[in-house]
Design a protein around this nucleic acid. Structure first.
Lengths: 148, 148
DNA sequence: AAAATAGATAGTAATCATTACTATTTGTAG
DNA sequence: CTACAAATAGTAATGATTACTATCTATTTT
């Protein structure tokens, strides 16, 4: 996991290179999201930023996250109807616990991202993520010992 | 793609084996979903069934689909915030066009479902699907010729 | 075969995340 | 430092899904 070091300056540059203005809310969102290597939804991110940016509206967070995903600075995917934003843009999978909703990273099973779907030669696929569904260690135990 | 032939009788049996009553709405939903091998969301399914089952409430469709997914008769996953139900429970991937929203099946890149995540020995993973994101043949052309 | 009962349904209301709208503000190019 | 296009905040609107409850029905019991 190569961790790129992000500073306010590098983020500003990155934003502009993607045709986005380097505004205060955007920089804050990027700093939070890119420095922490974990999964956020829009609300969580807004809650985290609110203390230091009281006027930042949820709306802005939603909009910004979608823009960042569109230009490819982050990835977004959906788990259980919840939109998750991931600053880790390398190819990797996820495991989701259907009981407690935990989501963790998994090394990708297929590193060769474009190879497999190459069979569908007409599609221009850009990225993919695999979502495994099941029970995390804790919940596995609980469901083992209690019911069934 | 082995296509199991479903009749009202086999569906009734299947439902009961999974602890679900063989009710009229449920049988209708199963017939529609299991016979057609494609991706439905709850609303589409309700629209398809409404003509023949005018009193069937959307609520029932939502509930039933979730139950069927819970017992493993169908799979559910999320694309772009849209919950999709899939009667194809074999391991396979999906390709999604971010422009026109088309969703198609792809043969799975990893047939050995439990092997890879076995590294996370503590998780009890049950199934997984990979979602590829990109542009379908049609939209690829459009975006090529028009903008950018 | 009729009665009992636990589960399922329909219909309505409520919820939740997300998007739409718009007047105001703010980066950035000139 | 001005001008303009883009971004923001705040509010309202949307749309999918869930919650609730009285009624109904499949299945079990008698």
């Amino acid at each position: 996991m190569k961790q790129k070091m992000w500073t306010e300056e590098t983020i500003k540059t990155e934003l502009r290179e993607h045709g986005l203005r380097a505004t205060t809310p955007r920089i804050a969102i990027c700093l939070q999201l890119l420095q922490q290597h974990c999964h956020y939804n829009a609300q969580q991110l807004h809650e985290e930023l609110s203390p230091h940016h009281p006027t930042m509206s949820p709306n802005t967070v939603y909009l910004t996250l979608n823009q960042l995903a569109t230009v490819g600075l982050i990835r977004s995917f959906n788990v259980n109807g919840n939109t998750i934003f991931d600053s880790n843009t390398t190819t990797h999978d996820h495991a989701h616990c259907r009981h407690c909703n935990t989501l963790v990273d998994l090394p990708s099973t297929t590193k060769s991202l474009p190879k497999t779907p190459g069979k569908m030669s007409d599609w221009a696929l850009e990225w993919g993520t695999r979502l495994w569904s099941g029970l995390c260690p804790d919940c596995k135990q609980v469901t083992d010992t209690t019911s069934r």
